[in-house]
Amino acid sequence: MKETKERFFLFIDKLEDKLREFAEASIPELEELNNNDTDEYKREYSSMKNAVLGQLESIMKKGREVQEEKITNFPYHENETKAYYEFRNECYQRLHRLDEINAIYCEKIENTQQEDYEIKYRKILDEYQIIKDQFHCSQCGSLVHIDKIYSTTTYLTCSFCNTKNTFEPSSQTKALEQLGRSLAEQRTAHLLLQYQEACKKSQQLYLKIHELELSLTWEADKNSVTQKEKQIQDLKQQKEKLEQQEPKLYQHYWRTMFDEWNKINPDMEEQHEKFYTRILNEYKPN
């Protein structure tokens, strides 16, 4: 068992080195490809990212396969059950650590996908300034003023001959509704983070309180008991305060996000508001 464990640890160490080296080297490559990929859907970049994530997964698969073969199925004698469980546990934990490292790198790799939606939105605004007085009625030739940004095909009436002209927006403007949400989320990401941080902090406080309460069970020293009880009370107060803030932060994020979205595509405000209502209705505090 000892020898197998050492070999397993060494094996996972080597996988870890590979994983770190490969992931580290891939990040600048992916960033470069993301910046230079002019395809509307950034498909070259996405393929390369999938391939990199696939390679990391191939490392993890190898680890899992060897773990199953050499550790899970390790033959042991009945009287060494306890030793076996200990051995197995340590080996599992080693692979688990690799899994955690992998998760961190996967997130870093996902984060190479940066897109500035402001640029795309700016293009739509600029286009509108150019085209708003560029079209003429197909019946009588009079100017047909495009009075606002339309993101769906619509009928515009010629003010001179009353003909209904069909106005079809450009491809980029047709994507305004979806782009609007992405942009609104980008603009308000700091508020979402604030909410998430508050949740994380109250979770940490919970764990700390729990830990202190457990330690009280074995505490004999009266002074320490009083001190710890006081500490627990303080932490509970902090936690309560945070928990009161959480729904407010949650609502504040969504309200601001939807306000931004409404500003970007006011034609869909009525629909956005229904979506907002649903989100708030479904919210359950932790």
Binding site: E29, L33, D39, E40, Y41, R43, E44, Y45, S47, M48, A51, E127, I131, F135, H136, C137, S138, Q139, V144, I146, L156, T163, K164, N165, T166, F167, E168, P169, S170, S171, Q172, T173
Partner: peptide
């Protein structure tokens, strides 16, 4: 990277269509 750059992707290439007016 080569593989990503050299392959053909599904569907037609994206074409940005300008705005149009007709009746």
């Amino acid at each position: 990277k080569q593989k990503a750059k050299e392959q053909k992707f599904y569907g037609n290439d994206y074409v940005e269509e300008p705005a149009k007016l007709n009746s």
